[in-house]
Design a protein around this nucleic acid. Structure first.
Length: 391
RNA sequence: GUGGUAGUAGUUUAAUGGUAGAAUACAGGACUGUGGAUCCUGUGACGCGAGUCCGAUUCUCGCCUACCGCC
């Protein structure tokens, strides 16, 4: 069970408290993604030091390795990964897309024409039907099957505070006809998950519908009508930022005010501002850790200029004698103790430590942003903060 | 000292009497419910000198360098 309380509002933006088994978290908040029961390159102690309130793990990956029963025998996910704060698990539904259509078409849930059109096609290892999702294991190619029953059962064994219903994330390249068909199936699965759900874990329903207004509205109404503890917005968010904003506007207008709202998989700086502005409470995103491994470090944008840039490419030779910290405005442990020269050197020499250092900084950067956002909403200064960051 | 072999991007290499293709590295870019994956773009080379030839990275000679063998 879950208790959500809205504590302040500034326009549609809101702060709140969310009471879960392992503690109460403040919203809006971003969950770092710990797919295989670890945020890549980070220890649980690191995350605690960063004051991360909640992490999200993945059902598909954990049921393959080490297996749900193993985790259960070891005392559940919290104990397994030495994390005594709240946890969420994703249902595995997203992997039907990321390992299926997304792989086949080399696209993501957001598709910007021009960026990716020349990319080669990959091989799908997931196939979806009304019964469930047929996967091949990424580890040994064995055949796996995930349906609402198994997803709920696995998530129960993993034992996170907050779990998600099994859904299908549709592709921005899918037709309306397909998306509509898929939506019906996602709705059926949502009801089924609800019926099978017997624990005191908070269960979150997911709104789908691609970038079509009628489908999004139909889904928002349907999911809102069911007794979920919270509501997530998932699926394709269209082909432009404008699409994404429209989808949020259409959907949120029909969601109950008193339930927390999670925007699945989103988390770049601009999107966080746009989503919070429209009333989103929760995010999860791989961006801070993924870009860290590619050599990008977040930096506070220069104030008073029009061009906003939130990151630098620290592998660039132009930093090889730069003694400044990654972000001169940052007070995290990495920025206090290490220089750009050193981080640049670690990348050039392929030293593993660098993944930890840059991931640590990037997560700090976004969690600090979330703290600043919460504060600004309490002080009714959200728009001011947004303007300061985005112009 | 002498006989042999070889010198092509930073590195490892391919082909060729009409000035060269790749891999990797490097420089940019993409990445939003994680494949430490991947993809896109760009920079970059015929050891030095002479000769033959319309034309030499390619053939010949000398030099230099490296490796192997012999004294």
């Amino acid at each position: 069970m879950l208790k959500f309380k809205i504590t302040s509002k500034d326009g549609k933006a809101r702060t709140g408290t969310l009471k879960l088994k392992h503690g109460t978290i403040k919203t809006p908040e971003l969950m770092p993604v710990a797919t295989k029961a670890t945020v890549r390159a980070m220890t649980s102690e690191d995350l605690k030091e960063l004051d991360s309130q909640i992490l999200i793990c993945n059902t598909y990956h954990l049921m393959l390795k080490p297996g749900a029963d193993t985790v259960k025998k070891l005392g559940g996910l919290n104990k397994f990964m030495n994390w005594d704060r709240p946890l969420a698990t994703d249902s595995g539904g997203f992997q039907a897309f990321s390992l299926g259509l997304a792989k086949e078409h080399s696209t993501g849930k957001i598709y910007f024409p021009g960026n990716k059109e020349i990319l080669k096609k990959g091989k799908s290892i997931a196939k979806i039907s009304d019964k469930g999702i047929k996967f091949r294991s990424v580890y040994d190619n064995s055949e796996q099957f995930l349906d609402p029953k198994r997803s709920i059962r696995v998530q129960k064994k993993l034992g996170a505070d907050m779990i998600l219903v099994l859904d299908e994330c549709t592709s921005p390249l899918s037709s309306k006809e397909y998306t509509k068909k898929s939506l019906k199936r996602t709705h059926r699965w949502a009801e089924e998950c609800l019926k099978l759900h017997k624990t005191n874990q908070a269960l979150i329903g997911i709104v789908q519908g691609g970038h079509w207004r009628d489908l999004r509205e139909e889904s928002a109404r349907f999911i809102s009508s069911l007794p979920f503890d919270g509501i997530a917005i998932g699926g394709s968010l269209g082909k432009s930022k404008k699409d994404m904003h429209n989808i949020l506007d259409w959907t949120i207008a029909l969601l109950p005010d008193k339930k927390p709202r999670h925007l699945l998989g989103i988390g770049v700086v601009e999107d966080i501002f746009e989503a919070v502005k429209r009333g989103i409470d929760l995010f999860d995103c791989v961006t801070p850790t993924r870009i860290a491994r590619k050599g990008y470090a977040y930096v506070t944008p220069p104030l008073g200029t029009k061009k906003r840039k939130y990151r630098i490419k620290i592998t660039s030779t132009k930093y090889k004698e730069d003694k400044k910290p990654l972000d001169p405005n940052c007070r995290c442990r990495v920025c206090k103790n290490y220089t750009r020269v050193y981080i640049n050197h670690l990348f050039k020499t392929s030293e593993y430590t660098v993944y930890n250092l840059v991931s640590y900084h990037n997560i700090h950067f976004l969690l600090q942003l979330m703290r600043d956002i919460r504060k600004s909403i309490r002080k009714k200064e959200f728009n001011k903060l947004k303007k300061k960051w985005m112009g």
